[in-house]
Amino acid sequence: MMKLAKKDILGIRDMTVDEINLILETAESFLEISTREIKKVPTLRGKSIINLFYEASTRTRTSFEIAGKRLSADTINISASTSSVVKGETLIDTARNLEAMNPDIIVLRHSAAGAPHLLASLVRQSIINAGDGAHEHPSQALLDMMTIREKKGQLAGLKVAIIGDILHSRVARSNIYGLSKMGARIVVAGPATMMPRNIEQMGVKACTKLEDAITDADVVMMLRIQLERQKQNIFPSLREYAQHYCLNRKNIKLAKPDVIVMHPGPINRGVEISPDIADDPGCSVILDQVNNGVAVRMALLYMLSGGNE
């Protein structure tokens, strides 16, 4: 039987198609638990999961916490602003101290790409990457793939447009790795200043105009403009960005009639997506993504805890 032979979940890049399929199928079985009156199963009773978040997060942190709690694990949240990080403790020292308290899984979000990989090599616990810099965000890509598969039946052969700040987006990177492994065609679009050089090497088509990218798309994935990462001025103003790259009622007509619109959140309304599209239950699957996110994270916690051996 197929199993996930991994200690850690660090990125989609090093996952096989079989592993992705196994995670998505397991996650689909977990969906039902969140619909019960008693939303809890005893599976991970006695396990401890530490959510170590060095960057702000609502969705991902809450989602991991709920996932752990619905599996009966004890979840502990640490955010950098209220921890010894403010006293100058290094990531490695923090991790060694947490390791000494013997948790089972550490979920790490960090602004430095590669931070989870460093931890994974240092501590014996399983590490889940909940976003490292502009590198990867594997659980987000998995929940996105789960949502697309739920709505479209499959991933292979679909045209997926990813729009916005590709350069700074770990969501884009993980999705590009995942979706291309699964056989989707990916087109990315964004201002030249937000487009990584040689992005075509990742197997995607790159355009400058939103309209070119979303034409005939089955899926349009809008990325958040990461104001916190815009230290250098890579666009003149939000208004100008919105004029060219905001998904709205008019330009969405270029996509397939049954297009689904995704966004990893949080949304800058009127910047990357107009409110009427974000709130349109006919095409927006943004809240389905959040719902599936809990199931995907339950699957990851379960599988790392030996639930798939």
């Binding site: 199928e25 397991t26 079985s29 599976t43 639930g307 051996e309």
Partner: peptide, 13 residues
Amino acid sequence: ITKTSKKAPLGKT
């Protein structure tokens, strides 16, 4: 759950 080696994949309830 963490002991046995023979397990079917998780199915839907």
